[in-house]
Simulated scan of single mutants.
Amino acid sequence: MIEAFVLVVVRPGSEEKVYNALAKEGKIKEIYRVYGEYDIILRVEVENIHELDKFHDEVLRRVSNIEVTETLIASSFRG
């Protein structure tokens, strides 16, 4: 299982529209509107890297008004 955080920048004024479009997607486990450089942060869970690629291609790239995304793949610290 891969957990990733996707930072999203949207076209100004379209935050609610993008939020609502993304909130329907099952792979997104959490979604937050935030202040700062990014407008929305997603926590995504997928089975493997291929599924993450597919999520980017079939979900994020098809939502209008998304201008920029940055994906951070989570890693656990074990000491």
Rank of each mutant, 00 (worst) to 15 (best):
I28C: 02
G36H: 11
L7Q: 06
V10G: 00
A4L: 01
N65V: 07
I28T: 06
E67F: 05
K27M: 11
F77C: 12
H56Q: 10
E16H: 07
L42C: 05
E47S: 13
R78C: 06
E67T: 14
V34F: 14
I66P: 00
F5W: 06
K24W: 04
H56I: 15
S75E: 10
R11G: 03
V6S: 03
L60H: 04
Y38H: 11
E58W: 05
E15P: 05
F5A: 04
S76H: 08
L60K: 04
T71Y: 10
G13K: 05
A4G: 05
D53P: 00
A4W: 00
R62H: 10
E67D: 10
E51R: 13
E15D: 11
I31H: 06
L42D: 01
L22Q: 01
E25I: 15
E67K: 15
K17C: 03
D53V: 09
G36C: 11
N48L: 05
E30F: 07
Y32W: 14
V6D: 01
E51M: 08
V34H: 11
M1G: 09
V10S: 00
N48F: 02
H56D: 11
E70T: 13
I49V: 12
V59S: 03
R62S: 07
D53R: 10
Y38F: 14
E3H: 10
L60A: 07
E25V: 15
D53M: 10
Y32T: 07
A4Q: 01
V59P: 01
I28V: 15
V8P: 02
A23N: 13
I31A: 03
E70G: 08
R43C: 08
A21C: 11
T71A: 07
D57Q: 14
L60T: 02
V6P: 02
L42P: 03
R33T: 08
A4M: 00
E37W: 04
V59F: 01
Y32D: 08
Y19L: 12
D39M: 03
E15H: 07
M1N: 10
G36A: 11
E15L: 14
L72K: 13
S75V: 13
I28Q: 01
D53S: 13
I41P: 00
Y38T: 05
D39C: 05
L22D: 00
F77L: 15
A23M: 12
V44T: 01
E3C: 04
L60P: 09
V9K: 15
I73C: 06
E15W: 04
P12F: 09
E25M: 08
R61P: 09
H50I: 12
M1A: 13
Y38G: 03
Y38D: 06
G36E: 09
A21F: 05
K17R: 08
G79I: 08
E47G: 12
A23V: 15
R43A: 12
A23T: 12
